[in-house]
Amino acid sequence: MDFKNVEDVQSRLESSNYIPSREISTVIFLAQATQKPVLIEGPAGVGKTELAKAVSRSMGRDLIRMQCYEGLDETKALYEWEYAKQLLYTQMVKDKIDHLISDVTDINDAVAKISSQEDAFFSEKFIQPRPLLKAITSEKPVVLLIDEVDKSDPEFEAFLLELLSDFQVTIPEIGTMSAVSMPFVFLTSNNYRDMSDALKRRCVHLYIDYPELHTERQIVKMKIPGIKEELLDKLVQTIGNLRKLDLKKKPCISETLDWAKALIALEADEISPEVLRDTLNVLCKYKTDEETVKKHIESLV
């Protein structure tokens, strides 16, 4: 079901276990109302992919996800002919083909007769749809998530550009296939490289940063309802302090949640420098980061 207004987005995302800022809700509403893709930027682990999932849940749509990587091409993203199936079928109907051309004497006529039947082998039956084609041909509207688009090659980006502007693809043997229902498209980027201006212009842009203290508090409380208030306050504050340090990989929301679970499992009622030191491997993913945190551990807690 479509969103009615910004408030509706806010409340429905919250009931889908995602706490959005007002800005996020506004962008989602605008994108849906104008049928434009959303390009989400932000550091790793701030909930870019989760937002797309939450939108699909709150709208009751299926989520089709496509992970981008270097070397991704149309056959992996759009469609591929099922050659093995085609080959198998030609072998199976070989007698029928023989029968079809049995009454002709001329090779040209035989070719003409067979080519009039070639639609049978180049039809939708023999197409293996990949995420993009699935999203376009789906009867029910879906949410299409094109994850980490910055990792794909510029050629693929150019192809995506064409798809996102018209929501239609041309398969030479079949013809043009237009979207049956408009998918709600999300593109996420970690800024490994800059996307082209043309792609950016076609999307509404959203930047998600690490959440503010009170939002992160709400998130932890929602995901781990049993957490004690004092521990929660101290936890989000310490995470906030950790993010101010010059770390190679700053702790993201999922690490906050992991840490909260670890603290509960260890039955730690408060966060002391010792507790932080003992559980540092949950928060830091690099040895150099651990060393940096240890240097400042007294001022963090």
Binding site: E23, L30, G42, N191, V204, H205
Partner: peptide, 12 residues
């Protein structure tokens, strides 16, 4: 402000 920002700012 979000409407202006999302349309005019295409990169953070």
């Amino acid at each position: 402000k979000t409407v202006l920002k999302t349309n005019f700012v295409k990169t953070q």
